[in-house]
Simulated assay, not measured.
Amino acid sequence: MAEEIVFCKGGGCTAKLGPDLLSHVLDKLPRGEKDPNLLIGYDSKDDAAVYRVSDEVAVVQTLDFFPPMLDDPYLFGQIAATNALSDIYAMGGTVKTALNIVCFPEQMDLNILGKIMQGGAEKVIEAGGTLAGGHSIMDNDVKYGLSVTGVVHPDHIYGNNQGQPSDVLILTKKLGVGLVCNANRVGLAPEGAMEEAAASMTTLNRKAAEISHHYEIHACTDVTGFGFLGHLSEMINEEISAEIDSISIPVIRGAIHCAEEFLLTAAAQRNRNHVGDRVEFSSWIPFSMEELLFDPQTSGGLLFAVKPEQAGAFLKELQGAGLPAAMVGRFVSKKERDIYVR
C-alpha cells in the first residue's frame, strides 16, 4: 500500500530554523570583499537585501517559502505569497517582480499545486507586481513561496535597527496566528479564531507601507517566525531599549485561550530560549501573554518606529484604512535590559 501523503504537517513560519542555530551557521560564512553598493546585507538582520543601482534607485531582494500550516491549498498559496511579499514593504520598497519556489511530491494531485500557485499569483497581482517565472523540484513534502524583487529610493530605506529614543512603536496586525494555527491542526481552535487568523495572514502589508511613506519612519521590521519579541530585539541598537505596553497589543481572538491551554509551538520555545534573557517581564504579566509575544507569526504585520510627534496621525490613518494597528510601546534611552514588558 502506498504511503499516504499528508498535505499539512505543521508549517508556516513555525518551520523556520531557530535563530540560535541560524546565527551559528551564518556567522561562519565567508563574506568576500565589501561592495559599497550593497546598502543592506549580511551586516544587519534586516528583512531583505538592498543594492544601489543608481543615485535614485536601489533593488530590494528577498525570498521566503515554507510548508503548509493549514489544509486549504489555495489559502496556503495566498498566505505564503503574502508573507514573502511583506519583506519588500518592511524595507520601505515597492514590489516589482516575483518568482515561484515550489517543492511538490510527484505522486500528489497536480490540481493541488495549481490551487497553491493560483493563490500565490493572485497576491502578486494584488501587490502590483508581475509573476515572472520560478523553479520547482520534487520533494516528499509540499513547500511554496516566492523570491521577490522590489525597488526603493536609496535615501528612503527602512532599516530595522535605526530607531531613536522616544520613537513610538506601532504594530499593524494582531498577534497569535501561530497559537491559533497550532490549535486548529489538532481541532481545538476556538470558534472563529482560525477564520480571523487566515484573514490576517492573507492581508498584504502594502497599504500600511504606503501610508508610512507620508511619515518619518526611523525603523521597521515585519513580525514573522521569530515572534514579536524576537523581531523587536533585532531593532535594538546601542542607544535604545524598548518598553512594551502589553495591554495595547492587538490579539487574534482565542489566541490567549490557546496559550492558557498550552497549545504551544516548539518555535515559540526556541524564540524564548534565544531572546528571553534580554527581556524583563513585569511580575503581573501572565504566562499566556509571554507566550503570545514569543509566538511565531506567519505573514505578520509591520512594526514601525515612528517619530513621536507623528505617531497619532500615523495610527489614525492606519486604522482609517481598516487595519487593526495599535501603539504598543516606545523606544527609550539605553537601560540594563533591551526590552521591558509592562
Score class of each variant (00 low, 15 high):
Glu3Met: 14
Val6Asp: 08
Phe7Ser: 02
Cys8Arg: 02
Cys8Trp: 07
Lys9Phe: 05
Lys9Asn: 14
Gly11Ser: 03
Thr14Ile: 13
Ala15Lys: 06
Pro19Leu: 05
Leu21Asn: 15
Leu22Pro: 12
Ser23Tyr: 13
His24Ser: 15
Leu26Val: 14
Leu29Glu: 02
Pro30Asp: 02
Pro30Lys: 05
Glu33Thr: 13
Lys34Arg: 12
Pro36Cys: 04
Tyr42Gly: 06
Asp46Lys: 07
Ala49Asp: 10
Tyr51Glu: 01
Val53Gln: 11
Val53Ser: 10
Val53Tyr: 12
Val59Tyr: 08
Val60Ala: 00
Pro67Asn: 14
Pro73Val: 02
Pro73Phe: 01
Tyr74Val: 00
Phe76Val: 10
Gly77His: 01
Ile79His: 10
Ile79Val: 14
Ala80Gln: 15
Thr82Leu: 02
Asp87Arg: 08
Tyr89Phe: 09
Ala90Asn: 03
Leu99Cys: 09
Ile101Glu: 00
Cys103Ser: 11
Gln107Pro: 10
Gln107Lys: 13
Met108Lys: 07
Asn111Val: 05
Leu113Asn: 10
Met117Arg: 15
Gln118Cys: 13
Gly120Val: 12
Lys123Tyr: 09
Val124Glu: 06
Val124Ile: 14
Val124Asn: 11
Ile125Tyr: 14
Ile125Val: 15
Gly128Pro: 10
Ala132His: 13
Gly134Ser: 08
Tyr144Lys: 07
Gly145Thr: 04
Val148Gly: 07
Val148Ser: 02
Val148Pro: 04
Gly150Leu: 01
Val151Met: 02
His153Glu: 05
Gly159Val: 12
Asn160Cys: 13
Gln162Trp: 00
Gly163Glu: 13
Gly163Ile: 08
Pro165Tyr: 15
Ser166Arg: 13
Ile170Trp: 05
Thr172Lys: 05
Lys173Tyr: 08
Lys174Pro: 01
Gly176His: 05
Gly178Trp: 00
Asn184Pro: 01
Asn184Ala: 14
Glu196Ala: 00
Met201Gly: 04
Leu204Ser: 12
Ile211Arg: 03
His214Trp: 01
His214Ala: 10
His218Arg: 15
Cys220Asp: 01
Cys220Lys: 09
Gly230Asp: 08
Ser233Arg: 07
Glu234Asn: 12
Asn237Ala: 14
Asn237Cys: 12
Glu238Lys: 13
Ala242Ser: 12
Glu243Tyr: 06
Ile244Phe: 07
Asp245Pro: 08
Ser246Gln: 06
Val251Lys: 06
Arg253Gly: 10
Gly254Leu: 01
Ala255Tyr: 00
Glu260Val: 03
Leu264Pro: 00
Leu264Asp: 05
Ala267Glu: 14
Arg272Ala: 11
Asn273Gly: 15
Asn273Asp: 14
Val279Gln: 08
Phe281Asp: 04
Ser282Asn: 08
Ser283Phe: 06
Ser288Arg: 05
Met289Asp: 04
Glu290His: 09
Leu293Tyr: 07
Asp295Leu: 03
Gln297Phe: 00
Gly300Asn: 04
Gly301Met: 05
Gly301Gln: 03
Phe304Ile: 00
Ala305Gln: 13
Val306Arg: 10
Val306Trp: 03
Lys307Ile: 09
Pro308Ser: 14
Gln310Tyr: 08
Gly312Thr: 14
Ala313Gln: 11
Gln319Asn: 06
Gly320Met: 08
Ala325Asn: 00
Met327Arg: 14
Val328Tyr: 03
Phe331Met: 07
Glu336Trp: 10
Asp338Arg: 12
Ile339Thr: 09
Arg342Phe: 09
